[in-house]
């Protein structure tokens, strides 16, 4: 009896998390899981009738004439979103790592100031900030205006409504999610380690690669997860900066729960996205562990 209680006590610290996420997240999502096997209601919602149509629809769709045929539309949309999410993660890593390292190497009070400076812009609404980028990027925007004034170009460059604009917007949105975890991992960076490395005649870059990067690895992994998953489902930057000419996963799911009135399909889509993300995370974690990327246990 007491041994069971003893065993359970080990888990005490996990209980609040398991309770909150279990009750308010996993249970509701199980409802959605059930929805994905039902039939769409006429005006949103579902009808209590079993069907696997929602999953079949992911790959095979009846064309306008009700003939079922292979339909790559959703695969195309999924790969487009994956591609953009990967680019976003890489961009955030490239930009975020030097920043996190630089901040971590500052004196303590200055470090905190830098951290706070990173969060200040996020007190303003994402949508409002994205609008500001439109102003910078559009044909009559600040960049084109400046370039034309300087006589460098005659015709405005097309910057807005491009995939580059989407990537820029996403990196802008998510880069703090990369900087903060890497900073958290690097903050304890012991100067003596670097000194030791330098004493062994390693130059700065060799030290960076063999001492700093392994230490930063847990932060880089955490940051990549925090950037990748939201970027995969993002729709504000793609819609506003990308011109909305091509659907992304985020908008596609959104659509099913609104004007498309197809909740089961939206539910099935999110179940598949979740499964793919889980697989990616699993493969990523395994890979990192195998290559010994410096992560303990």
């Amino acid at each position: 009896m007491s041994s069971i209680a003893e065993k359970l006590r080990v888990y005490t610290g996990l209980m609040p998390a398991v309770f909150v996420i279990g009750v308010f997240m996993i249970v509701p999502i199980m409802i959605i899981f059930v929805y994905s096997f039902l039939v769409a209601g006429d005006f949103g919602g579902v009808k209590p009738k079993f069907s696997t149509d929602a999953y079949v629809q992911l790959l095979f769709q009846k064309n306008l004439f009700d003939v079922s045929e292979f339909n790559p539309a959703y695969l195309i949309i999924a790969f487009r979103s994956l591609w953009i999410a990967v680019v976003t993660v890489l961009g955030c890593l490239l930009l975020g790592f030097p920043v996190a390292y630089y901040i971590a190497s500052q004196p303590e009070d200055r470090r905190n100031l830098f951290l706070l400076l990173i969060t200040i812009p996020f007190w303003t609404n994402l949508l409002v900030r994205t609008y500001c980028w439109i102003l910078v990027l559009r044909d009559t925007g600040l960049i084109n205006g400046a370039l034309i004034n300087m006589g460098l170009i005659d015709e405005p460059l097309t910057l807005l409504y491009t995939e580059g604009a989407v990537a820029l917007g996403l990196i802008y949105t998510y880069v703090p999610f990369m900087v903060l975890p890497i900073y958290a991992a690097l903050e304890r960076l012991d100067v003596r380690l670097i000194e030791a490395s330098r004493d062994l005649y390693a130059n700065r870059w060799v030290t960076l690669r063999h001492v700093v990067v392994p230490l930063a690895m847990p932060g880089m992994i955490a940051g990549s997860i925090l950037v990748f998953i939201p970027a995969l489902g993002a729709f504000i930057a793609p819609d506003l900066l990308g011109g909305g000419k091509n659907l992304m996963l985020g908008s596609l799911v959104q659509l099913q729960f609104s004007s498309a009135r197809n909740w089961p399909f939206g539910a099935a889509l999110s179940m598949v996205i979740m499964a793919v993300v889980l697989l990616c995370l699993y493969a990523y974690a395994r890979n990192v562990r195998k290559n010994g990327g410096g992560v303990q246990h």
């Binding site: 769709q61 064309n63 539309a73 959703y74 195309i76 949309i77 909305g244 659907l247």
Partner: peptide
Amino acid sequence: NRVWTALLQ
């Protein structure tokens, strides 16, 4: 929906 997805795929 089918028209819309085909348009924006």
